[in-house]
Design a binder for these strands. Structure first.
Length: 650
DNA sequence: GTAGGGTTAG
């Protein structure tokens, strides 16, 4: 009823406005149309992030109207560049309510109390506040965790509409007041599609998925009819998907009627729309069920970019790049995200040529595209390739972000290039606020490059964050440079900071013990893994302990331990034993270890060579010749690093 | 063509 009255009023005022315009300014209509078109263009450029292009157009316009200024301001507000938006706002010849509301909404959506206050100050100075202004303030206070002030605004405003009520519901939920939100919702005088979905999505974000489902059932029963239900259903389906409850998601999806043919997807009708399909496909993709996802995708009558990107991402995630590639070729208008996903996929399977090919063919790139290809090269250990792309990125003027810098730090670590690492560190200081991954990458880079003191400096700055990766990086750094006592000191510090060690921590700590010859300490720590920390030692930990014991000459004990291991010993275990047996000239143990190594890695010459040299050392030339024959029979070529002639014979 | 509340990818 209200809607139809509004429609009539709107239509009439629109006609009057048109009559008025054509009557008073007949010669300007062409000019007006021109301004209108340029405004539309500015708005489009602003929306798609092409802010500089928008500004160039805006500056070129000979005649501007208030909408031109507003559209330009809106571009800056979207990017939260409030200083630039404010400059326009202060300069513009005439401001309407749109201009004021735009600025207020920009300020209150920025993070920080200063911005909120600036928004409020504009709100207070605004000549004629309308419902939008008041609603914006409700949303602003709610987003900043100030529900009391939001309620105050709500009570003071002269007239409320459904947006005001929805903003309050959202506010309660943003601040964790589930009961308050439900109570407020029940008492609302009017509800629209956004009301129910605000409640449902907010409840899900508060971990109340089942309560959200109950609310929808109640709404269906009490409000009668199925209006405004679709969005809530879609949200619930997504909620089930996020919690891996795919069957329940599918049950809801099947409850939404399908209507093929004319009138499809009309507003307010309870019919599956493209979002319902996309969401259900996403549930299957998340669950790893690409077959069901594809089945639905093929049944869709109309697909949008999200449908395509979701199914392509599904194939990429299960590393099935051929199917992803086929779909990408069929996709009508791939966007940056589609391209980025293909690059990341090919990089993941190590096909850098294809990744690079897609990267080169992209019509437009963003920072994620650059990052995907740089990370691809880095993960595949093509460090020079990664640096080349990073340099190209600078040349083309794309600004690196924290992900770029983190990747290039890993590159510096990979090629052990301290100078490069330090340069990237400088960029980090200039360009981003370091986060946990960046700090860890810095610690790893410095310690791997031997600048252990610099690594420690950063570690000392971040250790209070108690991120286990930082601790592991520091302990690993000390251990790999033979600073055993420092590694153990940080390990002790870690315990006093109540940071729970991981299996990686223990690999480094045991490694340190091996270097320092700390047999008892090593054994004690090894045992404590299971007893104190509940971490079952893996084969790598066993290899470390074997290393510790056998280096110390406890070869037989080490052998006993290997035989008692809960799993098959690997090359590292036997290798450690063989190496130590060589050092301690224990031929019996060496023989066992070498045989096992030959069994596990028949192509390797190292065990033969070691054994040969040991026999030769003690003058057992017969056995030595036997080993040499065995090796020749197995058709093994000796590696350059090993010599048949031990220096002691020369 | 520009402002307030709300579903799907990354």
């Amino acid at each position: 009823m209200i809607r139809s009255i509004n429609a009539v009023v709107f239509k009439r005022s629109f006609l009057q406005a048109r009559l008025f315009c054509s009557y008073t300014r007949p010669d300007n209509s062409i000019q007006d149309l021109h301004v209108y078109k340029l405004n539309k263009k500015i708005s489009h450029l602003s929306k798609t992030g092409q802010i500089n292009e928008a500004r160039a157009l805006f500056d070129q316009m000979e005649q501007k109207n208030t909408v031109s200024w507003n559209a330009m301001m809106s571009g800056y507000v979207k990017r939260r560049e409030m200083a630039k938006a404010r400059k326009l706002f202060d300069e513009m010849p005439q401001r309407d309510n749109f201009s004021w509301n735009l600025m207020i909404s920009g300020y209150v959506s920025c993070h920080g109390i200063g911005f909120l206050k600036e928004g409020r100050s504009l709100f207070d100075r605004m000549p004629e506040r309308d419902c939008v202004s008041w609603n914006t303030m409700i949303g602003g206070y709610a987003k900043n965790g100030r529900m009391d002030e939001a309620s105050e605004v709500y009570l003071m405003m002269p007239e409320r509409n459904v947006v005001s009520w929805n903003a309050m519901v959202t506010g309660f939920l943003q601040n964790g007041d589930v009961a308050g939100a439900i109570e407020f919702f029940e008492r609302m005088p009017e509800k629209d599609a956004a009301s129910l979905s605000a409640l449902v999505s907010g409840l899900i974000r508060n971990g109340e998925l089942d309560e959200a489902a109950r609310v929808v059932v109640r709404f269906e029963r009490n409000e009668g009819g199925k209006d405004n239900l679709l969005q809530a259903y879609n949200t619930l389906i997504a909620g089930y998907g996020q919690r891996s409850r795919v069957d329940e998601a599918r049950k809801l999806f099947d409850q939404i009627p399908v209507c093929y043919g004319k009138g499809k997807g009309r507003d307010g009708r309870f019919e599956r729309n493209v979002v319902s399909w996309n969401t259900m496909i996403m549930c299957y993709v998340k669950a790893g069920d690409i077959v069901s996802a594809r089945e639905l995708f093929d049944q869709m009558m109309e697909r949008d970019t999200i449908s395509w990107n979701t199914i392509i991402a599904g194939y990429v995630n299960v590393l099935d790049m051929d199917e992803a590639s086929k779909l990408f070729c069929k996709m009508p208008n791939p966007d940056i995200l589609s391209w980025n996903k293909m690059i990341a996929g090919y990089a993941q399977i190590g096909d850098l040529d294809r990744a690079n090919d897609f990267f080169g063919r992209m019509p437009r790139k963003n920072v994620v595209s650059w990052n995907s290809v740089i990370t691809g090269y880095e993960k595949n250990e093509d460090y020079i390739g990664a640096i080349k792309i990073f340099i190209q990125m600078q040349v083309e003027g794309e600004k690196p972000d924290r992900h770029t810098l983190s990747s290039v730090l890993s590159v510096s670590t990979g090629i052990v290039d301290l100078l490069l690492g330090m340069q990237i560190h400088q960029l980090v200081t200039k360009m981003v606020i370091p986060d946990v991954p960046i700090n860890n990458a810095l610690i790893t880079m410095y310690s791997r490059c031997g600048a252990i003191i610099d690594a420690r400096t950063i570690f000392d700055e971040v250790k209070l964050q108690k991120e286990v990766i930082s601790w592991n990086a520091m302990i690993g750094g000390y251990a790999s440079h033979g600073h055993a006592s420092e590694a153990l000191e940080v390990f002790k510090l870690m315990k006093s900071f109540d940071v729970q060690p991981t299996h990686i921590t223990f690999i480094s700590v045991l490694h340190a013990c091996a270097h320092a010859g700390l047999v008892e300490e090593g054994r004690r720590i090894f045992i404590s893994m299971a007893t104190e920390y509940g971490i079952e030692p893996s084969v790598e930990h066993y290899a470390s302990l074997v290393d510790i014991m056998s280096r110390h000459g406890q070869l037989e004990q080490a052998l006993d331990m290997i035989n008692g291991m809960p799993f098959e010993p690997d090359k590292a275990v036997w290798g450690a034993l063989l190496g130590a047996a060589k050092v301690h000239n224990n031929i019996e143990v060496a023989q066992v270890a070498a045989e096992e190594l030959i069994r596990l890695a028949p192509d390797s010459s190292a065990p033969y060579v070691l054994l040969y040299n040991m026999y030769a050392d003690v003058g057992q030339w017969g056995s030595a010749a036997e080993v040499r024959k065995m090796m020749e029979r197995s058709n093994i070529k000796k590696q350059a690093a090993y010599s048949w002639v031990d220096s002691s014979h020369c």
